[in-house]
Amino acid sequence: DEDELTGILKKLSLEKYQPIFEEQEVDMEAFLTLTDGDLKELGIKTDGSRQQILAAISELNAG
């Protein structure tokens, strides 16, 4: 699971946030449920980064 998540972050060039997800024990299943508020709480402060992550999440959820 973590590897898939790392792959997604790398694709977005946001792998610098990978340790945050690891630290908070966010797995792929949890990742797919994250909201903008969750990402802010995790410490992802950049709007653009959150938008990219949320776009990836909705794409993955759309299947």
Rank of each mutant, 00 (worst) to 15 (best):
F31E: 05
E29R: 13
T33F: 02
R50Q: 02
Q52T: 08
A30E: 11
D36P: 04
S13M: 06
E15I: 06
G63P: 12
F21S: 02
L34A: 05
S58G: 14
G43P: 01
I57T: 08
E22H: 05
N61M: 06
E4W: 02
R50K: 02
K10I: 01
E41V: 08
V26D: 01
I44V: 14
D47V: 12
E15N: 04
I20G: 04
G48M: 10
Q18A: 14
E23Y: 03
S13N: 14
L42M: 14
I53D: 06
L60V: 13
E23Q: 09
I57Y: 01
G43H: 03
K40V: 14
I8Q: 15
K45V: 08
I53G: 04
L54F: 01
A62W: 04
E59Y: 14
L39F: 02
G7C: 11
L39Y: 01
K16E: 15
K10G: 03
K45F: 09
T46H: 15
M28N: 06
D38L: 00
K10T: 12
L34D: 02
I57D: 02
D27L: 00
G7H: 15
E29F: 02
E4S: 09
L54S: 07
D3S: 14
E41S: 13
L54G: 04
L5H: 00
I53H: 04
G48P: 11
G43Y: 00
E22P: 01
S13L: 03
G48N: 10
I20S: 06
Y17R: 01
I57R: 07
L14N: 00
N61K: 14
G37F: 12
L5V: 09
G63L: 09
E4H: 06
A30K: 13
K40I: 11
A55C: 14
D27K: 08
I20Y: 07
L5K: 00
I53M: 12
E59H: 14
F31V: 06
E15R: 03
S49L: 08
L60I: 11
G48W: 04
Q51K: 13
T46G: 13
D1I: 15
K40W: 07
T35E: 12
A55V: 06
Q24L: 06
T46P: 12
G43I: 00
I53Q: 01
P19I: 03
L5A: 00
L39T: 01
I20Q: 11
Y17L: 10
S13K: 11
I8H: 08
D36K: 04
L32Y: 06
E59T: 10
S49K: 09
G43V: 00
Q18V: 10
T46W: 03
Q51R: 11
D3T: 10
E25K: 15
I57C: 07
G37W: 06
E15G: 04
K40Q: 09
S13A: 12
F21I: 02
L32C: 09
Y17T: 03
D1A: 13
A56G: 14
T46F: 05
K16Y: 07
A30C: 13
L39C: 02
K40S: 11
L60A: 09
T6A: 15
R50I: 06
Q18R: 13
V26Y: 06
L5C: 01
S49T: 12
A62V: 10
L54R: 06
L14H: 00
G48S: 14
D3G: 04
Q18H: 08
G63S: 12
Q51H: 07
L39A: 02
Q52G: 07
D27W: 00
F31Y: 03
M28C: 06
L12P: 00
E29T: 10
D36A: 08
F31I: 06
D1G: 13
E41W: 03
A30R: 15
N61C: 06
G37R: 10
G48Q: 13
I44Y: 01
L12R: 03
